[in-house]
């Protein structure tokens, strides 16, 4: 089942084009990794998929009944004001916002979900701490927990493991894999960790000068894996 089609998408800022005529589909249950150099437009593509930014041309069509409030998102950076008073609990719970509709308060089910994701991220001891007083890696885990709360069908992650220590990184990959395999949630992940991309993803989107989209196996055989992911291909 196709959940999302990007049709002849051109992306850019202020009329300046970064990506030209991109066409690809995302199927339900996919684990798609987006790779490419710094500044190649990966984050821009993700923001466009989420509707945070208008494409220069082309459009994004959703299928299979995918609605906007069924998507979880982890931004690459969150510009949270330095003095914003917000506890870890409040931040994670705000991920359930899209389940709430017009109901003014969170119900038991949503609070349970938030607790569950806090536990999954190993944040139980930090629940009442102030978000801005956490370390970078801890903040990243809080935002991941929030993204998980918002996820029902699709999860978009922009460099989820940046700033995490090796142990937590490994845990994170396992967690994302289990979300994908067991809960059947579509995962779209931007990463520079080509080893992980080749280990976990079933499809790869490589963007840059020229674009590649296809299965992991096809990617390893293609010319793209030579230069950019040389070491990855050897393994």
């Amino acid at each position: 089942m196709v959940q999302l089609i990007c049709q002849h998408l051109s992306l850019g800022y202020d009329g300046h084009e970064i990506l030209h005529n991109l066409y690809f589909k995302i199927n339900a249950g996919d684990y798609l990794c987006i790779v490419g150099e710094n500044g190649s437009g990966k984050s821009t593509l993700m923001k466009t998929i989420l509707g945070l930014q208008a494409p220069l041309s082309g459009k994004i069509v959703t299928g299979d009944g995918l609605r906007k409030n069924e998507i979880g998102y982890l931004p690459q950076q969150t510009l949270v004001q330095r003095d914003f008073p917000a506890s870890v609990w409040e931040v994670v719970l705000s991920g359930c916002q899209n389940r709430q509709g017009l109901r003014p308060f969170y119900n038991v089910e949503e609070k349970r979900l938030a607790h569950e994701n806090i536990e999954k991220m190993g944040l139980s001891s930090l629940t009442d701490r102030c978000y801005r007083e956490l370390s970078g890696g801890q903040q990243q885990r809080v935002l991941l927990a929030r993204a998980l709360c918002a996820t029902k069908k699709m999860l978009l992650l922009d460099e989820p493991v940046s700033g995490l220590d090796p142990v937590v990184t490994e845990e994170m990959y396992c967690l994302i894999e289990s979300i994908n395999r067991e809960d059947g949630i579509t995962v779209v992940m931007i990463t520079h960790d080509i080893h992980a991309a080749l280990k976990y993803a079933n499809r790869i989107l490589h963007i840059g000068e020229s674009v590649f989209i296809g299965s992991k196996e096809a990617y390893m055989k293609s010319k793209f894996s030579d230069g950019f992911a040389g070491q990855g291909g050897v393994r």
Binding site: K47, L50, G51, L52, R67, K68, N69, E70, I71, G72, Y73, P75, T78, V80, F84, A86, E90, V91, L93, S94, G95, Q97, N98, Q100, P104, F105, Y106, R146, A150, L156
Partner: peptide, 23 residues
């Protein structure tokens, strides 16, 4: 304010995330 408290928080804390996830 009371009825929209959680929405006001979500929008104030991280507008991009709120928008992206359908708020």
């Amino acid at each position: 304010f009371v009825l929209f408290y959680h929405k006001i928080f979500a929008v104030t804390f991280d507008e991009g995330f709120a928008k992206a996830t359908g708020t």
